[in-house]
Design a protein around this nucleic acid. Sequence first.
DNA 1: TTAAATGTTGCTAAATTCGGAAACAATGTC
DNA 2: GACATTGTTTCCGAATTTAGCAACATTTAA
Lengths: 105, 105
Amino acid sequence: MITEEQRIRAERRSHMFKALAHPMRIFFLEKLREKPWCVCELAAEAGIPKSAASKHLSQLKEAGLVDISKTGTRVEYNLTAPCVLDLAACAEGTVLTNRRRHLGI
Amino acid sequence: MITEEQRIRAERRSHMFKALAHPMRIFFLEKLREKPWCVCELAAEAGIPKSAASKHLSQLKEAGLVDISKTGTRVEYNLTAPCVLDLAACAEGTVLTNRRRHLGI
DNA sequence: TTAAATGTTGCTAAATTCGGAAACAATGTC
DNA sequence: GACATTGTTTCCGAATTTAGCAACATTTAA
């Protein structure tokens, strides 16, 4: 049987992965690796309305992956957990290697 | 503007995170860290019908995170990318740290 | 052959997420 | 004050995901 602790733990971990489970949010995180960006800049870069960008960034913030600093009306988002992107790269590499192996080296 | 390469890359990565974005699938991966398990065992451990377990495991396999080996009617699932679980640990740590900081250190 | 055990797939309803437009709030500028 | 800029929130329809049950396929055992 699954214990309460295990349930909480899995819940907590999957929560962050939910935040990462969208191409646009991955794109934003990669941009934020370079430097901080504001909402309208990221929206322009991605070619989507700022409301959509704001919502995606809000999810990332809620998950603790990014942080903000306001100056005037401008809201700058910056990366707080670079390790996530590093490990994402590792995971992707493993998956790709595995897929190649599965197809016959 | 967003390049085609960036789009593909973000798509590929978010796909992997989608597979991780469910408590039950996280739970399964943690179990698979110990040893290989078959579908009905994991279903019993989690207290869900085997059809649901099969579908979750199928998603993990499709993402390249697990692998199978059949013997008779039994299908054993095993972990292919242990570093993914490190990613989960990092994610959890980030969430907790951020939450504490957000509440005022 | 019949039955049991194991997995997968189809189906439908419920829940969740997503996208875009508009309304709204807050700040800075003229 | 009037207006522009920047972000957030709300609303709603569309798309996706999920859960549970039944049906089905495959292999093993009696």
